[in-house]
Write a protein that binds this DNA or RNA. Structure first.
Lengths: 258, 258
DNA sequence: GGGAATAATAAGGTCAACCATAAGATTTAA
DNA sequence: TTAAATCTTATGGTTGACCTTATTATTCCC
């Protein structure tokens, strides 16, 4: 039924899904994400459109077709299941999970994927807090708000980290901004300006953020984060605004639309 | 230090190692194993020779250089560790292990390999009975004799299966010729002719063959093999002679040189 | 020693996925 | 409305790993 897609194809589809399933993504954005030139991305978009995986609206952007969405979810499922395995069982550093799982995902046959899911106990979220699509392609939505839309003064909880680049993940890891962590938005300069957060320990816990909590505990054992119940963190301009999703925690601000 | 080798390069190196570390392998043999034409293999051998991974003696064959041997062992290690994982933890069908592990091996970073080894408890043999090279490249030799050299009437124990093609492995699996199994060589026609074996249950057990035994038990639960303490098996001509290694069991025949 | 089998080389071709440069087309924001 | 920014298309190039067909070289065995 489903023909084997090339690694490159899978990367394009995954990028589309990560940038927002259903969204219209400008080709340039896709190119940037994948680290290729706009011209190359354009070529590839043509190929994928011919294969019926993408639908291209010139000068607007591309969306996943139904076939494309299914394929993309399959890639995302493999990616995130491997992240779980690497984290929970191989104890790989959090910041490296994405990169390492990424290479594995393209080499994973369906029967391995499903056996892995069973082995892992059918997890619903990856260590970055993102939902793992089900085998049938269904996808639990993330009830969060992008950090850039969180008003100053809000006390929020990190729900999921959307970033994928290892250096950005390292950056977050070093500052202990991880799923499950509670932060207060102290100051947010407009227009991609710097963002200041105050970090505090999370007090409640649920399934989604279990992994974040576990990670925090693991770090605490190494003396990271522990004994510093509150600290301030100032992100450089334009790096984190699109990276972290938050769930409202104690404030009651209505989520704005993306 | 070690530059990332391409998947193709790794396959050539692995094939060299599987055909015998240290051996001089004719290019045609390599081509056959890898399913490419002699011309293609020749081209590739040139490239690998230039990279210092192989040493090519025209009209004789190729050997691994020291660098090549190290790289090949690394590939073999990854391959066989994944086989262990897929078999022990994901319960993947024995015959499919090689094929599925093969795709994963090329996508596995060193730190994942080592973390996997720790997770698995540093196994010394893969489910096919082949030794897993250590992280430092050292390689436990197999104290066995290729089936084609086992004289008629010998009672031997399957030590390791050297075959890699899924269909051949399925063939063996269906007939329960697996590591740990004891067989009697009833008849062996000369010159790649058919080979008749009598299968009996293995009575003793050691570390090397533990996995085979476990598999046999697992099959027995499904009614395969159990209740048939002895059966005859006739292999088609020229298929198994090079595939299975045996350890002498109750007979005392001096191993012939390969 | 000669012929069969095997190995090597040469020449030319394909394919996917990239690249650069340059020239148009369209959208958006001043 | 016009210029800047973004997007698309065209052209031509590269790389790795394959392929076929054909020719030449070497080894091995009778």
């Amino acid at each position: 039924m489903t023909v084997q897609l090339s690694e490159s194809t899978e990367m394009y589809l995954k990028a589309m899904a990560e940038l927002g399933v259903g969204d219209v993504v400008p080709v340039g954005r896709l190119a940037g994400r994948l680290g290729v030139t706009n011209v190359s991305a354009n070529e590839m978009v043509h190929r994928l459109t011919e294969q019926g995986l993408l639908s291209h609206m010139p000068y607007k952007g591309v969306t996943l077709t139904e076939t494309g969405r299914t394929a993309a979810c399959s890639v995302l499922r493999r990616q995130r299941l491997w992240e779980c395995f690497l984290y929970d069982h191989l104890h790989i550093e959090w910041a490296k999970l994405y990169e390492l799982a990424c290479s594995l995902e393209h080499a994973t046959a369906p029967e391995v994927t499903e056996a892995l899911a069973v082995f892992l106990g059918d997890p619903k979220f990856c260590p970055r807090g993102n939902p793992i699509p089900a085998a049938d392609g269904s996808f639990a939505p993330l009830h969060g708000v992008p950090l850039r839309y969180v008003p100053m003064g809000s006390i929020v909880q990190v729900l999921a980290v959307n970033a994928t680049e290892t250096d950005v993940l390292k950056y977050l890891q070093e500052r202990d901004i991880l799923p499950g962590r509670e932060v207060t938005v102290v100051e947010a300069a407009p227009m991609e300006g710097p963002l200041t957060l105050r970090l505090g320990w999370k007090r409640r816990c649920d399934e989604t953020t279990r992994r974040g909590i576990e990670h925090t505990r693991r770090l605490a054992r190494f003396g990271i984060g522990d004994g510093r119940p509150e600290q301030r963190f100032r992100a450089p301009p334009g790096r984190l605004h699109f990276l972290v999703f938050f769930r409202y925690w104690e404030s009651a601000i209505s989520p704005m639309k993306r």
